[in-house]
Design a protein around this nucleic acid. Structure first.
Lengths: 212, 212
DNA sequence: GCGTGTGAAACCATTCACAGCT
DNA sequence: AGCTGTGAATGGTTTCACACGC
């Protein structure tokens, strides 16, 4: 079966809301209300969920805990995922302490850098290894996903190393298109491009040469 | 005219590549090669550009400097944009020094926080103001876009303040759907959701209840 | 011949509308 | 009556295929 990126991105949002609702002790929620929380239409929510099963009850909506559990299973979040951060610059250091990760079961088990100043130090209690020992440490620690926060020039060759170390997912912050072996999933976070894109909608737009 | 988010997101990528190509002194590039750099099909690149005009020359491709200039104009990047960071936690502090912003003409002109420890300090040479003076400082400094890196609970009410201060674009890192007045553009960066989404493709997927 | 620009076709995603259940 | 689940209809995006210009 074939599920698109976009559906999964939305499931992640639903999961986030259900997590919060569960904490507040909310028992059940209708597609209409869930949709409002994420800024979508109810139809969309129901259709997305219907790809994976029938989780709702007519007249009632969805049981929060049940649906949260189902999404956790679908998204592969049941047993926490083991994550490493490669590149302990400003961004890497900020993310090593990011609350949002640990809450959702992403456990940061290692940090890596190539700078002698950083190797051997601890950041938020996480030991920073020499990047040369990437493969060894990743296998030892069972690293499943990597957050890659290195300078642009270094990103591609490290992505290869990371893939060789058996890691199956890379969240890439470097503004380059990484090429990796099949079977490795890359998601990109391109901060400057986000700004550029907003710039268009607010300050560009007018200079259009062509209508349509 | 109506241009979709997705086209603009891709234009931002093209711009990034053209910026690099220009620095390397490359004179011209074909859609095929540009597509390879961003991981897309040549047809897509040509179609995207054709919404805005005819920039290429048959048999030659696109002149790098010309196309870069055209995209800068379209994206509203010609005169640098003035940006503030609201929330000087780990992430805010990391982003205040992010090279990728200044290079592309996004000038960080102010930082804000509500903590007495931080107010009055400088981060990478940027003064941290009391968040209470948001409106005043934003108008004084001509802030056009805000990067919002505050705790989830604070995000919604600050988004309102920011909008009131005349800022037209918010890059939101808090995992909530912000509601803002019409005319204000919000882009979300939800780091935990990125990880969740990758988790599905690598470790979820199998547990599908329904085929299709 | 080679690479652009662009209608037409194919594909995918969202929205609609309603049957079915409680 | 109210809310889910889902085919059918709509709308949007990507890919194809080819005419045109150098």
């Amino acid at each position: 079966m074939n599920v698109s990126n976009r559906i999964i991105a939305r499931l992640s949002l639903y999961y986030r809301c259900l997590y919060n609702l569960a904490q507040q002790g909310t028992f059940s929620i209708a597609s209409k209300n869930l949709a409002a929380l994420v800024g979508l239409k109810p139809d969309q929510v129901r259709k997305d969920l219907s790809y994976f099963g029938k989780f709702g009850k007519p007249r009632v909506g969805y049981n929060v805990l049940d649906l949260k559990g189902a999404l956790a299973r679908i998204l592969g979040l049941e047993q926490g995922r083991r994550v490493a951060i490669v590149g302990m610059g400003n961004l890497g250091q900020a993310l090593v302490g990011y609350k949002g990760f640990e809450e959702l079961g992403f456990k940061i088990v290692a940090a890596f850098d190539n700078s002698p100043n950083k190797i051997g130090k601890k950041y938020r209690g996480k030991y920073c290894y020499n990047i040369g020992s990437l493969a060894t440490v990743c296998r030892q620690e069972g690293v499943e996903m990597v957050i890659l926060t290195v300078p642009t020039e270094a990103a591609q060759s490290l992505a290869q190393e990371i893939a060789k170390a058996g890691v199956k997912a890379i969240l890439n912050f470097a503004p380059v298109q990484l090429s990796v072996p099949k079977g490795v999933k890359v998601n990109n976070v391109d901060l400057a491009s986000e700004l550029k894109s907003m710039s268009f909608f607010v300050y560009g737009q007018k200079n259009l040469a062509r209508k349509h």
